[in-house]
Design a protein around this nucleic acid. Structure first.
Lengths: 329, 329
DNA sequence: GCGGGATGTGGTATCGGTTTCATATCGTGT
DNA sequence: ACACGATATGAAACCGATACCACATCCCGC
């Protein structure tokens, strides 16, 4: 059933029906007629037909690398909370860690499919940059920082620095690092730099042999821990770029009877739920993921309303959460 | 830029452009002209304009109670995997555990916004049933079983039964239960029935005082554990309807020096990542969440293709994963 | 040489809404 | 009595695509 059939059924004009669903200027008589017919028929106007004239989709595209990650789902929850309150819906694209799909999705979103885009990016290539600057809809990047674009990000460097410093202040002398791919500026490069900054400041030379690059998984953390802890020069603390990696390290320690924090201190980033219940509760850095999602959504909202081209970068701070894995002395 | 402007720019007819993006019957000359103009202008056809004629949105609505839950995000990942391979995108609605939003979202999806709907439901009210039977688009329910509709669900009763039986077989005599709201048929009622079945079969009478209802959170599990374990009659095993609840129970046991599995065995459901790294690794039941998502998506796809009204129910089986929390003798 | 299927083409009706426009009625201040 | 703004109304143009239609080739078999 379309609007003219419905209008006939209700005994009013097409314009009247359209006015009912949009602005005012409609007599109470007609309003009642329409409501009665609505009750009878269950008519609903077609969104796409509306969109074709108004150019408004009430849809926001969200591009993310995976769904089953605590940090990402928290961010998404923040986004969803703010946007749904404003009547927007989320068009989700799960790239499954495939950068090419980020590109194709951005392409897709240029076709007037959405009113705005939020990109939970991992890595930026030149293609990314080129495409992003050609976007015709407001776009916000969450979790990474890219000059010239709207971003909400975390202080990854500071977080890594503080966590590493915490362990060094407790007397660690042989710090090790297990991080993520350096192409990922936030979780990879910045967290490594934070680690290195703290180590250097403590008067220790960063030893490349004490630094490993892992995937974002427990298993990977486990493997890298095995590498680091079975060598000759053993670390007395490990800073892990994510809690997942830290959990893998801890697994290895449990199996090999390495005592935590006695023999080895461990610190993570992300303050995941898991960290609290690990067999040795994990010290971590709380990043405000949900807030990042909310703020990203708010930034997008204001961008969509104003249509302005101002680019802002919002960096959120962090909180150190100390638990048993670093409690010495 | 719209199709006629673009057609003029390319030097071809509007029909030719439309044919370029759809079927064949287009000479190579025109194809080349269009491709050249595409390169120059970056024109993309409008999705909503297309939808208005074809009635195809290439969108699937997914309604879920929350995002930051491991089980739900796994299901969603399965859904996303299958549907994106078929060129569909997900329109996500996060109801934030608000049943009313499930209703309004279903309403919304009746407006030709999507080609199909997947509902990760929690609770079914009469309103749900009424609305679901009025849906004009193919709909699949994942995680719950509702007669007369397309469903993909787990064998929740069997899962709970087997886990409880495992603990009873190891000699537990005073089994306790911490479950979820009984309005949730799958995670609430069925898992409780499975527990009760196993207990009864073992010749033990189910003691209502040994049964608590928690929320789906660690904290709630912790609180209920305190209730059960500080009473006079202490349980020697607790079956928890979810791993999160079990993790809360374990937290309490750690604080109060209750030894696991010596004093108390604990079993969960869901085989969450957390379970493996808990301070006592948790026995759990692996439910095939991602598979459920995939199968739900497949079911929806075949429903959308055929347009048939056949209703199927697919129940997935489970695997017991035994870890230290129930390893006795 | 001719009927008929496959291929190729552009004009235009159509999808289901919104917005503009011309027009009408009303209350009200002067 | 009259001008004027606020309210109310339906017809028709319009948004940007697709699908149908009428028509033009071309190739093939008979």
């Amino acid at each position: 059933m379309n609007i003219s059939e419905f209008a006939k059924e209700a005994g009013v004009s097409v314009s009247a029906v359209s006015r009912y669903f949009n602005d005012g200027y409609l007599s109470d008589d007609k309003r009642a007629l329409i409501e009665a017919a609505l009750e009878r028929t269950g008519y609903m106007p077609s969104y796409s037909a509306r969109t074709i004239r108004t150019k408004v989709t009430k849809l926001v595209g969200v591009i993310l690398p995976k769904l089953s990650s605590e940090s990402i789902s928290r961010v998404t929850e923040g986004i969803s909370e703010v946007l749904s309150a404003e009547g927007f819906e989320l068009l989700l694209v799960n790239t499954a860690n495939d950068y090419k799909r980020e590109i194709t999705s951005l392409e897709l979103f240029r076709q007037n499919r959405v009113d705005g885009v939020i990109l939970l990016a991992s890595v930026f290539t030149d293609t990314h940059r080129a495409l992003l600057s050609k976007m015709r809809v407001p776009t916000v990047i969450v979790g990474q920082q890219l000059k010239g674009f709207n971003c909400v990000c975390h202080n990854d460097l500071g977080a890594a620095y503080s966590m590493t410093k915490l362990m060094l202040d407790k007397g660690a002398k042989r710090p090790a690092f297990i991080g993520a791919n350096q192409d990922d500026v936030a979780a990879g490069r910045d967290r490594r730099r934070g680690f290195e900054k703290a180590v250097t400041e403590a008067g220790i030379t960063v030893d490349p042999k004490m630094c490993e690059i892992a995937k974002f998984s427990m298993d990977s953390g486990y493997e890298k821990a095995k590498l680091l802890l079975s060598g000759r020069k053993k670390p007395d603390c490990i800073f892990c770029a994510t809690d997942n990696i830290a959990a893998g390290v801890m697994q290895y320690c449990r199996e090999t009877d390495i005592s935590i924090p006695g023999d080895l201190m461990i610190g993570g980033v992300g303050d995941s739920r898991m960290g609290k219940v690990l067999y040795v509760p994990l010290s971590s850095v709380h990043l405000h993921y949900k807030t990042a999602g909310r703020e990203g959504a708010n930034m997008l909202l204001s961008e969509m309303k104003s249509g302005s081209e101002v680019h802002r970068i919002l960096q959120l701070e962090y909180d150190i959460v100390e638990r048993e894995s670093t409690k010495r002395g």
